[in-house]
Design a protein around this nucleic acid. Sequence first.
DNA 1: AATGAATGAGGCTTCATTCAT
DNA 2: CATGAATGAAGCCTCATTCAT
Lengths: 182, 182, 182, 182
Amino acid sequence: MAISSSSNRSGPENRRALLAAAREVFTTEGFSAPLSAVARRAGVGQGSLYRHFPDRTALAIEIFDENITVLEVFVALPGSTLDDLLDRVIEQALASIALIDLVTADRHDPRAVHLAERLDGIVARLLTREQAAGRIAEHVSTADVILAVSMLAGILARSDAPDRPDVARRAWRLFHAAFTPR
Amino acid sequence: MAISSSSNRSGPENRRALLAAAREVFTTEGFSAPLSAVARRAGVGQGSLYRHFPDRTALAIEIFDENITVLEVFVALPGSTLDDLLDRVIEQALASIALIDLVTADRHDPRAVHLAERLDGIVARLLTREQAAGRIAEHVSTADVILAVSMLAGILARSDAPDRPDVARRAWRLFHAAFTPR
Amino acid sequence: MAISSSSNRSGPENRRALLAAAREVFTTEGFSAPLSAVARRAGVGQGSLYRHFPDRTALAIEIFDENITVLEVFVALPGSTLDDLLDRVIEQALASIALIDLVTADRHDPRAVHLAERLDGIVARLLTREQAAGRIAEHVSTADVILAVSMLAGILARSDAPDRPDVARRAWRLFHAAFTPR
Amino acid sequence: MAISSSSNRSGPENRRALLAAAREVFTTEGFSAPLSAVARRAGVGQGSLYRHFPDRTALAIEIFDENITVLEVFVALPGSTLDDLLDRVIEQALASIALIDLVTADRHDPRAVHLAERLDGIVARLLTREQAAGRIAEHVSTADVILAVSMLAGILARSDAPDRPDVARRAWRLFHAAFTPR
DNA sequence: AATGAATGAGGCTTCATTCAT
DNA sequence: CATGAATGAAGCCTCATTCAT
């Protein structure tokens, strides 16, 4: 939370500091916040930022990569459900709101495509499991769920912090109603 | 001696030209396009733009105001339904995607609040009518519908143009499933 | 010579001030001097510089254009000779040394090509006249003279100011010996 | 445990690698290429580059020193002529054009002065020999020849690669005409 | 000594905004 | 009132140079 004190961190340390700073800055000021603010917050020179992340997208991708990894770990657990996934998305959206901007802004970057595919995999696995258990209607497709997740993340991204829990709960109920078998 | 070059339109004329130009520019180049582009497209000096619209938000509000008015006119028709509303939102989103950015960016501007209230009114009226007819489940609230509309507009705003019809259809089906009485 | 005092010049005035400043700055500090120095010297904001000259080349072309125009006026006089041309080139090279860098750096810019053609025309006219008078050997071609002019301008550009008159005289004698009929 | 990665060359080895890399980089990308590119190409750390060559000029001087040495070896041969010298200059200029930039840019560095003196010696020796044989006019001075060599190198440096042979030939003929006794 | 990351000054460019005409 | 040029503050990015390991 505190701005890292200035000098003499090592390479990997700086990298981590930059990622953390980017999460915070993007969360606080949006994805189009100046990169210099990220560097400043990380307590690192502008040059170092550019060494580690040659452009804004590189930073974005890396952050989202970490998020996806968390989801993958989670979906590997046998008991995890779509509800859990939505919970995680909500958590992540709260933690680093601007990531959705980021991934949608760079939708065509090849590096982003890879992340999208990983997300697909996660959803597909969960969905199969849920449908087998009869908890999700058969007609629901992976694309439907991805769409729901995207919409949820998007709306959270543009809600005010105090409203988010309420928004999340309400949206969650809505999707639930849409996906549950009749 | 009067040269009839492009200039010398009157006040209200310039105002209209600027609004039309802003719609086009924001649609084409996104909501963060330079205001100079708007003035250029309107064939109007920068100064005039600032006289009519002191900041970017003023322009945004005005545009969205026009959109809301269209919706109000429409909802005044006796036979109009929520489905129709979604259709209109989809249409508008397709026509000028960047407006969603705009309204979400300026969420707190007092001028925007007023627009939000008008939207609330529209939805409330429709919802009452639909629930009376038994087409929408009783437990659905105005806030739920507003949320759906927001999510729909948001997701369309960040989809690629060619994907939008498909995305819209899929989302529409999802909300339908969520709102229909069992 | 003095740095223009700051505010409130009109469009064409600023344009002229920028060109003059560019001549001086390029002469003093070379063609790769910061453009901000040109703006500062002209007493003009950076933005204005960019409005008038969207890139370094635009500035360069304009300056060289003025130079070529001087040569064209001069060659139109009936009595003008190749010697006179060399004199003018020396004068110009002394006055704004870095222009050679500039034109050679942007050799392929279409805007520069046009200038090169005008220079060709000037030399061709002079050469014809001189050969008719028997003052230049028949085997000398336009390309030879252009080459000589280029080499002369180039060497002057990279000589120290105090050495230039001597260098110019020496080079001039050399080309004379090469071009005179035996 | 010693990893035999690319690193760990000895001092003199690094020095040679850096010189070779500098030649290549300056030739390919011009004399103002980033020094980091030189270090990278040499497979050497930035720090090592700075240890061996404290600034860009040091690198330049060293490279040109090697070139001059080649010329000295060559002029020591009894049969070598001014024509041969021009040939060599052309060769060198073709091989590493940017060196001319370099030497003219640092004209005043005391280290460069020394090189200039060596070049003087080379030319003087050749000139004496040629004039004794009656192949060069008596009135031609060392300074004249140096001037010619400089102009030749300069013009080659700023010609496009495909044009260079032609430019060289034409310039060569020009100087020949100027220097040959009548 | 060699390495390669860190630094930070400085150049380039783009707008939002102002203001003389 | 309209115009459009002028302004200057930022943001972006690139190195030359330093320095801990």
